[in-house]
Structure formats: structure tokens, C-alpha cells
């Protein structure tokens, strides 16, 4: 890592990796849909935003999160602003959680994440149904929330490894 730090250019790319990953994920929407597993899907940007706005806010600009949401809406063909709204709600939730937490705990974070994504997906679902007359299957949202919750713990261990490398 020290060798990387001496090379300023690579270190910058490495330190902005989460935000790059966020933009790649919203443009790419990778969620292994092509495996055709019934109901299987998860929301990677939710995990990424939640973790990095909670743990390493320095490199995670809210404005970029807002733009990432706009891109996601265009790629997925949702009404403009919906994803930005959802992502910013996560940011608010993490900001609040950061302010009230005295002793951080992984398990607490995990279940708080479940609460946050459930709330956000519910709001999302309601807005699309009520204001935009979309026909949606609730089951997909529930399964998506469940798998996002499950995958959180896996990705968090990878992100922690990344943060450790960055701080070292």
C-alpha cells in the first residue's frame, strides 16, 4: 500500500474506487439476472452507498450519489429522480445513524440496513404505483430486499478489507 501511496495517480484511483464502482454498477446494473434464478436480484448500489456513507464519508460526495441516481433512472427506465431520492434517503439514514451511534457494531449496522432498505423500497413502490401507475409485483421487491440484506454482510467484509488497505 505504501508503494501505491508513492504513486499518487494510482492511489487517487484506489481511493475513489467506491464512487467509480457506484457509477459502474448503476450504468451496468449487474445483478446476475442472466442466471435466470427465479426472483433472484439484489441492489448493489444500496449496499455500497449505505456502507461508505456510514464508514468513509470523505470520499463519497452526496452530489455524486445524486447523479448516480439520475443515471440509474435512465438505465432502468424509472421516472427521473426516483433513484436519487432513494439513494439520498439512505444517506440521511446513515448520517442519522452515525450521529446517534456511540459504539459501532456490525450486527446493528446490518439490521439497521434491513430496516432502511425495507423503508426505502416501500416508499419507492408506493410512489411508482400511486403517482406513476406502474404495474409492479410486490414479491420482487420483497425478494430483492431480502437478497440485498443477505449480500450486505458479504460485501461489507470485502469493503472492510478495502478500507483497511486504504488506511494502512
Amino acid at each position: 500500500m505504501n508503494a501505491l501511496k508513492t504513486n499518487n495517480y494510482f492511489f487517487k484511483i484506489y481511493s475513489f474506487l467506491p464512487i467509480i464502482l457506484l457509477f459502474v454498477s448503476v450504468l451496468n446494473e449487474f445483478d446476475f439476472n442472466y442466471l435466470n434464478l427465479k426472483y433472484f436480484s439484489f441492489n448493489f448500489p444500496f449496499i455500497l452507498i449505505f456502507f461508505f456513507t456510514l464508514k468513509d464519508l470523505k470520499r463519497f460526495d452526496y452530489l455524486l450519489v445524486f447523479f448516480a441516481g439520475l443515471l440509474n433512472d435512465i438505465v432502468v427506465s424509472l421516472p427521473l429522480g426516483i433513484s436519487s431520492f432513494s439513494y439520498l434517503l439512505i444517506c440521511i439514514a446513515t448520517s442519522y445513524f452515525r450521529n446517534i451511534t456511540i459504539r459501532p457494531s456490525g450486527i446493528k449496522d446490518w439490521f439497521y440496513f434491513l430496516f432502511v432498505i425495507s423503508l426505502i423500497n416501500s416508499i419507492n413502490y408506493s410512489i411508482l404505483i400511486l403517482f406513476f401507475s406502474y404495474e409492479l409485483i410486490l414479491m420482487y421487491y420483497l425478494v430483492n430486499t431480502f437478497f440485498t440484506f443477505l449480500f450486505y454482510i458479504i460485501f461489507v467484509s470485502i469493503f472492510k478489507f478495502y478500507l483497511k488497505g486504504l488506511n494502512d
Binding site: 460526495d61 452526496y62 452530489l63 445524486f66 441516481g69 427521473l80 429522480g81 426516483i82 436519487s84 410512489i127
Partner: peptide, 16 residues
Amino acid sequence: QKFSLLSLLLISISII
């Protein structure tokens, strides 16, 4: 951070 969350949230709501 260049913008507060509230201002960004209001912008996204107005876009919606």
C-alpha cells in the same frame, strides 16, 4: 460535502 442532504433531497423531489 458541497451540498447539504436536504437541498439535494428537495431537488430530487422536485424532479420527480
